[in-house]
Amino acid sequence: MPSKRNHWMYGLSGALLLIEAAIFAAALFPSVTPEYRAYYLDRSTDCYPLPVSGAYRLGDRVSFGAASEGKRVDLARCGWRDPEARGSWSDGNRSMLRFAIAPPPADLVLQLSVQPYLDAETPRQRIEVTANGTPLETFELVEKSPAIHRISVPSDIVGTTGWLDITLNYPDARPLTAAGSGTRYYALFVLDVALMGAVD
């Protein structure tokens, strides 16, 4: 007949096994944000969104050039290279912007002043635009010259959160390898961005 000591040992062993199983499960299925999982665990994206302020005044045009780095860093969450004199290149297959705005009474317009990366192997760049996870538009650039593109943003997408997170996906991003810097993906050179009312 098992002694009380044996019962105690069996109980302790069972508890230890449960603790180890819980630790193992936590390692396999950690409780993390979808962004953390995609970037660090699944490696399904190279764009980890930074907690930027999103500080923005509706209607302002924000240059992505080096001279206005302060305003740029308020909006640029991830997927951007260091700014050059006139603007900033996208970095990877995705870029994100964040605008902190009050719930708008009417639809908005996102304005992007851009140039695509094009060469003999990349004759076009498609840009897929989403806002707060909702697909807005896919547009195509086939000319190297600067262009202004405007995208309608329905007011109900912003809702009452006060955040407008814009994602730009680049299915045609061009991988280029440079000595000492590894492989970089080029798609879009952004000169400035603006968010305005539909009648501005």
Rank of each mutant, 00 (worst) to 15 (best):
F139L: 12
A66P: 02
T130L: 06
A106D: 12
Q125P: 01
L16K: 00
P51C: 06
V32M: 04
W80A: 03
K4E: 15
R124A: 15
M196Q: 11
D156H: 13
A38S: 13
T134V: 15
V193F: 01
R124W: 09
D119T: 08
P105W: 00
L188F: 10
D119W: 07
S145T: 11
L41R: 00
L17A: 15
R43I: 05
V199P: 00
E84F: 15
G162L: 04
R98I: 01
P51Q: 05
G14K: 00
D165H: 05
A100F: 10
G79Y: 02
L141S: 09
S181V: 15
Y39T: 05
P30Y: 04
G59W: 05
T167W: 00
D107L: 08
G70Q: 07
P123A: 06
T130I: 06
L141I: 03
I166L: 09
S88Y: 10
Q115D: 01
L75P: 04
G65M: 02
S113D: 14
F29A: 11
G11Y: 01
A187E: 03
T183Q: 11
I148W: 03
L188Q: 01
A102E: 13
G54P: 14
V142N: 10
P2Y: 04
V129L: 14
E140N: 08
E121N: 12
L164A: 03
I23S: 09
Y36F: 14
L17S: 10
Q111W: 01
A21L: 15
T45N: 07
P123T: 04
N6T: 13
V190H: 03
Y40E: 10
V73F: 07
P83K: 00
G162V: 08
S181I: 13
T122M: 07
D165A: 08
P2H: 01
P171R: 01
S3C: 04
R81C: 08
L108D: 07
I148G: 03
N132T: 13
A131P: 02
G133K: 00
R174N: 06
Y40T: 03
L18S: 12
R57H: 12
M96V: 08
F189E: 02
Y39K: 03
V109L: 07
L28A: 10
E20Q: 08
R150N: 09
S44A: 09
R174S: 02
W8T: 13
I148L: 06
E84R: 08
A120L: 11
A27Y: 14
V158Y: 00
G197D: 14
Q125I: 12
E121G: 13
F24W: 11
D42S: 14
A15D: 06
S63P: 02
F29H: 09
Y48M: 11
V62C: 06
L50A: 14
S13I: 14
F99N: 09
I151D: 12
L118R: 02
R5F: 06
V142D: 10
G54C: 11
A173S: 12
G133L: 04
S53R: 00
L164P: 03
Y36T: 15
H7K: 02
W8M: 15
